[in-house]
Design a protein around this nucleic acid. Sequence first.
DNA 1: CAGGTC
DNA 2: CCTGG
Length: 295
Amino acid sequence: MKTVRLSVPAGEVNLPLCVRTGQVFRWYEIQGLWAGMANDALLIVNPEGNRWSLSAVGGEPIPLFTHLFRMEVDLKSVQVQLIRRDSRWEQWVRALPGLRLMRWTSATECLFSFLCTPANNLPRITGMIERLCERYGTPIAEWGGRQWHAFPTVERLAQAEEADLRALGFGYRARTLIEVARALQAREPNWLESLAELPYWDAKQALMTLPGVGAKVADCVLLFGLNHNLAVPVDTHMWQAMQKWVLPELRGKSLTERTYRQIVDWFHERFGEWTGWAHQYLFTAHLLESQRKGE
DNA sequence: CAGGTC
DNA sequence: CCTGG
């Protein structure tokens, strides 16, 4: 495993902030390094100073890192755009230096991972996905005193037994995962990936034909896995943040199809193609605040 | 109940 | 409607 160096200007990436805030689920801090699985590749990062060392198994470290963290995007200019479009974003940009919108390498992995998130929390989601990969994924590498497994293939998941998944702690999601795997097999190959080429609303509608995929999960897969920067996943954090800090007229209302759409429309009007990034700053600000308060 | 989907 | 905290 060869190690390469990459110049990372100060403030361009805060790695822990990016990988521990619900955008991705397979990153761990091990012996002062950060290791993450992206589908079938292992990336190991030493985020120190402005010359980071990167190594990878199953991929080229620099292209992989660049893809996952969207390093082609200049963070400073994103931040300027957000603040220019709505000055309230300045406080969240300041509070979250180095926060980036992540990009998965596999839409399939992204879909199955976010299917695990409804009515769930980060530690439990992480554990579920880890056990899923250990049980159904091929071993990729041994590093840092543990085995690293690829994310299971659709074929493997389609053959899984519901009882086995329940034993791994998936609860009612066990059935959904298997159903979605079989649904994907029944469609054309690359059906999921092809949604990246559709307009946002069409892609969202198509995704929501899958069992277990509602508006929120669909938006997560569109934003993180299919490069749809118009997607706005409205979960409880986004909903509360919007009511408290952005759209007071939502106070007293509940999150329905209508209010969900009202929020998406508002983001599109205000932020256009920067919607996904704007969402990420607001979401993370509320997530961290709720963690501080111990909610 | 809180979080999501049906 | 499900369901784990």
